[in-house]
């Protein structure tokens, strides 16, 4: 392909210019989205959307006491997908649905982009090779699963330390325990949509209430003191 273009230098130059301009426009559009997203997140909208940070924390870190999830560093496509699901009623939440409905599709994408760009909580331990005891139910389910029941480990899809993987597998580390518990119970009761390949309803069918509390506590606690910890993924 490059050979064909190369036969006509002027066309090649032209193509490069187009690419450069397109990239520049994309970067500008992204910066614009980021500004729009930041405004929604920190100030809300004139139509009545409250500032996201009033519940989700100034840095998108979530609110452990209230069980509001952390948004910082969560994949943008995942976040905008959830906002769309709140807007169309697939995912139920009396708090989120009105706000999600009031936002335009662009607004939802922009605010998702903004929160995804914020750093995740510091001190997430991604080294799960340390000795873990089977009696530590939360850590064991998180890193080893319970295969005699066909239950995979959380980390097998949500990544080392639960830092999240790609679009479909959101981070668990640093999420409030109450949030993780409520979502797992939501799948158990059939009120949260099954999600990709309906994986989670099968997973939760193998978890007892005690298991759910234990694994939620494990991931909620997988963050370190913010003063001395390295950001996620920087230390391998």
């Amino acid at each position: 392909m490059s050979g064909a273009i190369g036969k006509v230098p002027s066309r090649s130059t032209f193509a490069m210019c187009v690419v450069t301009i397109a990239l520049g426009m994309t970067a500008t559009a992204r910066a614009d989205d980021m500004m729009v997203g930041k405004t929604i997140a920190t100030q809300g909208t004139a139509k009545g959307v409250a500032a996201c940070i009033s519940c989700h924390g100034a840095k998108g870190e979530g609110n452990a006491a209230a069980g509001f999830p952390r948004l910082a560093g969560v994949n943008a496509s995942y976040l905008s997908g959830q906002l769309s699901a709140f807007a169309n009623g697939e995912r139920q939440s009396t708090i989120m649905q009105p706000f999600a409905k009031l936002l335009s599709a662009n607004g939802r994408s922009a605010v998702a982009l903004y929160f995804s760009s914020l750093p995740p909580p510091a001190g997430i331990k991604t080294n799960d090779s340390a000795a873990i005891k089977p009696s530590d139910t939360g850590a064991w389910i998180a890193t080893r699963g319970r295969w005699d029941q066909g239950l995979p480990a959380c980390a097998q899809c949500h990544g080392p330390g639960g830092i999240g993987v790609g679009v479909a597998f959101p981070p668990l580390a640093g999420q409030p325990a109450a949030y993780i518990e409520s979502q797992l119970h939501g799948w158990k009761k059939g009120v949260r949509p099954p999600g990709p390949m309906a994986l989670m309803p099968v997973i939760v069918s193998k978890l007892s209430d005690t298991d759910i509390s234990a694994v939620a506590a494990y991931y909620a606690g997988n963050v370190g003191p913010s003063d001395n910890a390295a950001p996620v993924g920087s230390k391998q």
Partner: peptide, 14 residues
């Protein structure tokens, strides 16, 4: 059983 729960529910597709 899953149909009897009411509201929007999502039965596992086993």
């Amino acid at each position: 059983a899953s149909g009897a729960m009411g509201g929007i529910t999502y039965a596992a597709e086993g």
